[in-house]
Amino acid sequence: MKLTLGVLDQSPIGPGENAQAALRHTLELASATDRMGYSRFWVSEHHNAPGLAGSSPEVLLAAIGAYTRHIRIGSGGVLLPHYSPYKVAENFRVLEGLYPGRIDLGIGRAPGGMPLSSVALRGGAPKQPDERFPESLRELASYLEISPPLGREHPLAGLKATPLVETVPELWLLGSSGYSAAAAAQMGSGFSFAHFINGYGGQGAVRDYRRHYRPGPLGAQPKVNVCVFVICTDSDAAAEREASAMDLRLLYQEKGEFGKPFPTPEEASAYPYSEWDRTRIAENRQRMIVGGPDRVRSALTAFAASYGAEEVMVNCLMSDFRLRMRSYELLAEMFPQRQR
């Protein structure tokens, strides 16, 4: 099986950097991975997150499209419960008009930040109940003209999302649980499992998605990919050193210390870990693939096989941008993608 690789980039703000540098790095990485032959380049949505610069994937994608030529670009993902399906449809129709046939619309239902930012995004409106999510997806599909228009009884019947372009984005539901897998199977969309968020249960969720898939308003064919953290350097020892910084970063998040900057390997080495800390680090390693080229090649191949997935989205979240770029270069050498 030939393994296809895509990229999830969260525009991380590295040690000693600012948000402007992180956004420039995202554009540079998109251009480089396009040349390397990666299949997709997705950007995430996070709010009030001091360590991540990507709060508006639609705006960032408009810039990324100008820096790339072949790679599919998309959201990983737009957090639909915060927004009007109509506005999301118009944003992605504009992107399709600019970069036809290259746009992915990945949709999530997570808050993407702390409760205060969720309240602000909704303009103070109450949180949408979960049962509203499928209806929002149907509205979105109708505005994109992927599914039939809204029925006459609907208060927005006859409404068109402009511009009226000829192509439509490829739709994916993103998730880290069985709920999203079930929704994707019911609605007919592709399904992307966030193994980098939840290192357990993803294989079962993907099996259930395939078993229960039916064509629906979001698509007619099942599609699966899975996203995982990958830390690959020229040697196992160097990768482990870099992974220690990621271990500490995830530990900070679990302790609610979201304002801390991305740690360096030196800070990770000096940190006074408790027994609980070490247990959590071992658990979080289930979300990562770490090593030099030989170890990563073997682990990533086995990982994809465990999901039965031919496409893996890799998130090389590392403390130094040069190391991140090198990680993607090594992966492209291990798993040659399309040729330029």
Rank of each mutant, 00 (worst) to 15 (best):
A30G: 12
A30T: 12
S31P: 01
T33D: 00
T33H: 01
T33Q: 01
R35G: 15
R35P: 06
Y38H: 11
R40A: 10
F41H: 12
W42V: 06
W42I: 08
W42Q: 01
S44W: 00
H46K: 10
H47A: 14
A49R: 05
P50A: 08
A53F: 00
A53R: 03
G54S: 15
S55P: 14
S55D: 01
S56Y: 04
P57V: 05
E58N: 07
L60Q: 12
L61F: 07
L61H: 06
A62Y: 01
A63G: 07
I64S: 06
I64G: 09
G65Y: 08
G65H: 10
T68V: 03
R72W: 07
I73C: 11
I73V: 15
G74I: 11
V78F: 02
L79Y: 10
L80P: 01
P81S: 00
P81C: 13
P81Q: 02
H82S: 09
Y83Q: 10
S84Y: 11
S84D: 15
P85A: 12
Y86G: 07
Y86T: 05
A89L: 12
A89W: 08
E90Y: 12
N91E: 06
F92M: 09
F92N: 07
F92V: 08
R93L: 09
R93N: 01
V94F: 07
V94P: 01
L95A: 09
L95R: 07
E96Y: 00
E96C: 13
G97P: 05
L98P: 04
L98Y: 00
L98E: 04
Y99C: 12
G101E: 06
G101I: 06
I103G: 05
D104F: 04
D104W: 03
G106F: 15
I107R: 00
G108Q: 11
G108S: 14
A110P: 11
A110C: 12
P111Q: 07
P111F: 09
P111W: 12
G112P: 09
G112A: 08
G113M: 01
M114K: 07
P115W: 00
L116M: 13
S117N: 10
S118T: 10
S118G: 14
S118H: 03
V119W: 07
V119R: 15
V119K: 11
A120S: 13
A120P: 03
A120H: 01
A120K: 05
G123A: 14
G123E: 09
G124A: 14
G124Q: 10
G124S: 09
G124V: 13
A125N: 06
A125D: 05
P126Y: 02
P126C: 05
K127Q: 14
K127P: 02
K127N: 09
D130S: 04
D130V: 15
R132D: 15
P134W: 06
E135Y: 11
E139K: 10
L140H: 02
A141E: 06
A141K: 05
A141R: 04
S142N: 01
Y143K: 03
Y143L: 08
L144T: 02
I146R: 03
S147G: 11
P149A: 13
P149Y: 03
R152L: 15
R152I: 15
E153I: 10
P155Q: 13
P155M: 04
P155K: 06
L156V: 05
G158S: 10
L159I: 14
L159S: 14
A161M: 13
T162P: 05
P163S: 12
P163Y: 07
L164C: 02
L164R: 11
V165D: 01
T167R: 13
T167N: 04
